[in-house]
Simulated assay, not measured.
Amino acid sequence: MRPTLPTLLRLAALVILVAFVAWPEWFAPVFRPLTQNNAPAIYNQGSLLTLTLTHLRTVLIATVAATIVAVGLAILVTRPIGVEFLPLSRSLVNIGQTFPPVAVLALAVPAVGFGEKPTLIALFLYGLLPIFENALTGLTTLPQPVTEAARGVGMTGWQRLIKVELPLALPVILAGIRLSVVISLATATIGSTVAAKTLGEVIIAGLLSNNLAFVLQGGLIVGILAVLTYDGLSALEALVARRAGVSTAVGE
């Protein structure tokens, strides 16, 4: 099967992104027209590759933590023993969306100090809602004949959850994770205001020095990462859905 034009464009974007963060000096002629007064055309206050990797690491840690908590809460409130905790759980996961990330950072810094920790807290809180709501949707919209058949063959509640419910709900859960990751990739840039090592450093340096080239470099890296991550997780979601024999329309 020949690759389609969108696939080729994604591959080209990935190659350009890797080349830029690894060897940014190659692209200096592209960004030099955006500079003034002989300012550097390429960010020179740190390694773009290192900042990109630490940015991704921060998002990954926050997303994994948010996924564990959000899916755990969704499982709890869809069991008979925990259904009464649904309103409380919804209130808890909405906290991150109620408070702006900047406000969360301001509240977290006095407690945990500057650096990556307050950024992780902000991203964790901000990423809970889409994962929780999608996990809840996935676990409450399962095909009734399948769940009844699982009960009919004598599966315990734990066996139904692991072998039937979670596999069927996984595509919808992945859709929530996808949304959470894309939000976190952009939101993580503000972590640099509290000394976290993210791509926000490049954007802030550009704003402080009135260097549009720096601002564009930071923004482009984050934007391309978000697009490629979104597409990659969408492909994974579709693959899981095909294997599970379910539709991904729910939770989109």
Rank of each mutant, 00 (worst) to 15 (best):
P171W: 00
R79E: 13
V18R: 09
A12Y: 06
N37L: 15
V250R: 12
G152D: 03
L136P: 15
I162F: 06
E133S: 12
R151K: 05
L212E: 07
F31Y: 08
P167V: 00
T50M: 09
A74K: 08
G72F: 00
L129R: 08
Y126G: 12
L14E: 04
A186D: 10
V172P: 10
V164Y: 05
V146E: 05
S192F: 14
I75P: 08
I131Q: 12
W26Y: 11
A62T: 01
R90G: 15
F20D: 11
I183W: 07
A103K: 02
I16N: 03
A66N: 04
A169E: 02
A74W: 10
L11F: 03
L73Q: 11
L233V: 07
A22T: 14
V93E: 04
R243I: 12
L220K: 09
T187D: 07
S192W: 03
P100F: 00
I221M: 07
T141L: 11
V102I: 13
L142K: 01
E84L: 13
Q36A: 03
E116K: 00
V194P: 05
T193R: 05
I131R: 11
N44V: 02
T198D: 02
L139R: 02
W23F: 11
G191K: 05
G223L: 07
P101M: 02
L207M: 15
A19F: 07
Q36G: 07
V64H: 04
R242C: 13
V215A: 10
Q217F: 03
V146P: 01
S91C: 12
T193Q: 14
V227W: 04
V250G: 09
F99A: 15
E25F: 09
T248E: 13
L51E: 13
I81Y: 09
I61L: 15
L120R: 03
I177T: 06
G176I: 01
R151P: 12
E201F: 04
L9F: 14
G245Q: 06
L73A: 14
G251L: 10
L166V: 10
L9N: 01
L92Q: 04
P118G: 07
S209R: 13
I131V: 14
T193D: 13
Q159E: 15
L239C: 05
A169M: 07
E133K: 02
T58C: 02
V246M: 08
T35M: 14
L60Q: 08
V194T: 03
S247K: 00
T147H: 03
L107E: 03
V71T: 01
N211C: 14
L48K: 01
I173T: 05
P100G: 08
A28E: 15
A149C: 08
T67K: 10
S234L: 12
E25L: 11
P130C: 09
L161C: 06
Q217A: 06
L179V: 14
E25M: 12
L107Y: 00
W26Q: 03
L220Y: 07
Q97T: 04
E237F: 11
V222A: 09
T4G: 08
E252L: 14
F20W: 04
A122R: 12
F20G: 08
A106R: 01
L73M: 15
P101K: 00
Y230E: 13
F214C: 01
N38I: 11
T63P: 15
P6A: 07
A12D: 08
S234F: 08
V71F: 01
L76V: 03
G191I: 09
T229H: 00
P40L: 13
I16P: 06
E201W: 01
A28I: 15
G206C: 03
K163Y: 13
V222R: 05
G219T: 06
A12V: 02
